Simulated scan of single mutants.
Amino acid sequence: MKVLFIGGTGTISSGITEQLLEKGCELYLLNRGTRNDTLPAGVNIIKADINDEDHVAKLIEPMEFDVVADFIAFEPAQLERDYRLFKGKTKQFMFISSASAYQTPLSDYRITEGTPLSNPYWEYSRNKIACEDYLVKQYREHGFPMTIVRPSHTYDERSIPLGVHGSKGSWQVAKRILEGKAVIIHGDGTSLWTMTHNRDFAKGFIGLMGNIHAIGESVHITSDESVTWNQIYEIIADVLGVKLNAVHVSSEFLAACSTEDYRGGLLGDKANSVVFDNSKLKRLVPEFVATTRLDQGIKQTIEYILAHPEYQIEDNEFDIWCDKVIHALDVALMTVTG
Rank of each mutant, 00 (worst) to 15 (best):
V219F: 02
V68G: 00
I111N: 00
S250V: 04
H186E: 13
Y124N: 11
E22P: 01
I60P: 03
T147G: 14
K89V: 02
H165T: 02
I160V: 15
A48H: 05
T291M: 13
A290Y: 09
A328C: 10
R35C: 04
R263Y: 14
Q78N: 03
T222R: 03
S251E: 06
T147K: 09
T335R: 15
F74L: 10
N278F: 08
Q19V: 08
K47F: 06
Y124I: 08
S100Y: 07
M94A: 09
W321F: 13
V336K: 15
Y262I: 00
T194Y: 01
A174Q: 06
V289W: 01
N211M: 11
G88N: 07
I160L: 07
L240Y: 13
F318K: 04
N272M: 13
L294D: 05
T90Q: 02
A48E: 14
S98K: 04
S13E: 04
G207M: 11
E303R: 14
H153K: 09
W321K: 09
R140V: 06
V56M: 10
V247H: 10
T17C: 13
K168A: 12
M63F: 08
A332V: 10
H308D: 07
Q172I: 10
Q103R: 15
S14L: 14
E113Q: 10
Y233W: 09
R199T: 05
H213I: 06
V3L: 13
D261C: 07
N44T: 14
S250D: 13
E53N: 02
S226L: 03
T337N: 15
E303C: 11
A202T: 04
T11L: 04
L267Q: 03
K299V: 05
V68I: 04
G338M: 11
A57Q: 09
T34D: 12
F65S: 00
P151Y: 00
S273E: 02
E53K: 15
A77Y: 08
G204C: 03
G42L: 08
H213C: 11
E80S: 06
T222N: 12
T190N: 13
R81C: 02
R84F: 05
A57G: 05
I184C: 03
D323L: 10
K280W: 01
D66M: 01
K128N: 06
F65A: 00
I148D: 00
C257W: 15
A271V: 08
V274D: 00
N198W: 03
S250A: 11
L294K: 07
G187L: 04
C257P: 00
V136C: 11
I326Y: 07
E18W: 12
E260R: 11
R81K: 15
L59N: 01
R176A: 12
Y109T: 13
G33M: 05
Y262W: 14
A256K: 12
I111F: 03
T11W: 01
P145V: 09
S97T: 03
N230V: 04
I185V: 15
S118N: 14
I12A: 02
K324L: 08
S125Q: 05
K270F: 09
R158E: 15
R140F: 01
Q92K: 08
R283A: 13
V227R: 05
S152W: 13
Q296H: 11
F253D: 08
S279W: 07
S223M: 05
D323A: 15
S97C: 07
V289N: 12
Q296Y: 06
V67M: 09
C25I: 14
P161W: 01
S170A: 14
